[in-house]
Simulated scan of single mutants.
Amino acid sequence: MVIEILKSKIHRVKITQAELNYVGSITIDEDLIDAANIIPNEKVQIVNNNNGARFETYVIKGERGSGTVCLNGATARLAQVGDIVIIMSYTYLEMDEARKYEPILVFPDADNKLLK
């Protein structure tokens, strides 16, 4: 049996931009996506801690070290600049492998920078 489990999570980052007139996606600082083992174009789920919205989109690589977390396109309607969100990616694993898998958890600081 194959099940879907949490692969990685960027916990409590701040939305820095919201660009409604864009094709779609979420732009994330390359440092954060590298730390979370997320790649450009990967599907992610986003949970907005401020308003409870939950939605899916895909990742665009943002400028390294910038702290950027920008919602693009229609998703820009689901959060405001300053909102705190959790970004999660998932994977499919066989049950035995899933039982042993430990997701990657990234806890950035208040400026969306990696903690050393």
Rank of each mutant, 00 (worst) to 15 (best):
V2D: 14
I3E: 12
I3W: 08
E4N: 13
I5N: 06
L6Q: 04
K7Q: 06
K7C: 08
K9L: 04
I10C: 08
H11E: 05
H11V: 03
V13F: 02
V13E: 01
K14N: 10
I15P: 01
Q17F: 11
A18V: 05
E19V: 12
E19F: 12
L20I: 02
N21Q: 04
N21F: 11
N21S: 06
Y22I: 01
V23S: 05
V23K: 04
V23H: 02
G24D: 11
G24W: 07
G24K: 12
S25G: 15
S25T: 08
I26D: 01
T27Y: 09
T27S: 15
I28L: 10
I28W: 13
D29E: 09
D29F: 10
D29N: 06
E30V: 13
D31R: 09
L32Q: 09
L32E: 10
L32T: 07
L32Y: 12
D34H: 14
A35V: 03
A35R: 10
A35M: 05
A36I: 00
A36Y: 03
N37W: 00
N37V: 13
I38T: 11
I39E: 15
I39C: 00
N41H: 09
K43Q: 15
I46H: 08
I46F: 06
I46R: 01
I46Y: 03
V47P: 00
V47I: 15
N48A: 09
N48R: 06
N49M: 12
N50I: 02
N50D: 06
N50F: 05
N51H: 06
G52C: 02
G52Q: 06
G52Y: 09
G52V: 00
A53Y: 13
A53S: 15
A53L: 09
R54F: 03
R54N: 13
E56T: 13
T57R: 05
Y58D: 09
Y58Q: 07
I60Y: 14
E63R: 14
G65F: 00
G65R: 00
G65I: 02
G65T: 03
S66D: 03
G67N: 04
G67L: 07
G67Y: 04
T68C: 10
L71E: 01
N72D: 05
N72Q: 05
G73L: 02
A74G: 11
T75N: 11
T75F: 10
A76W: 00
A76C: 02
R77V: 01
L78G: 11
L78R: 11
L78M: 15
A79H: 08
V81Y: 07
G82N: 07
D83K: 09
I84G: 08
I84N: 02
I84Y: 11
I86K: 00
I87C: 09
I87N: 04
M88A: 15
S89E: 00
S89R: 07
S89F: 05
S89M: 03
Y90I: 00
T91E: 13
T91I: 14
T91V: 15
Y92F: 10
L93N: 07
L93I: 04
M95K: 13
D96C: 05
E97C: 01
A98P: 02
A98W: 01
R99Q: 01
R99P: 01
K100H: 11
Y101A: 07
Y101C: 07
E102A: 14
E102V: 14
I104E: 11
I104D: 04
I104Y: 12
L105N: 10
V106L: 08
V106K: 11
F107C: 02
A110Q: 15
A110I: 15
D111E: 13
D111S: 14
L114I: 10
K116P: 15
K116F: 11
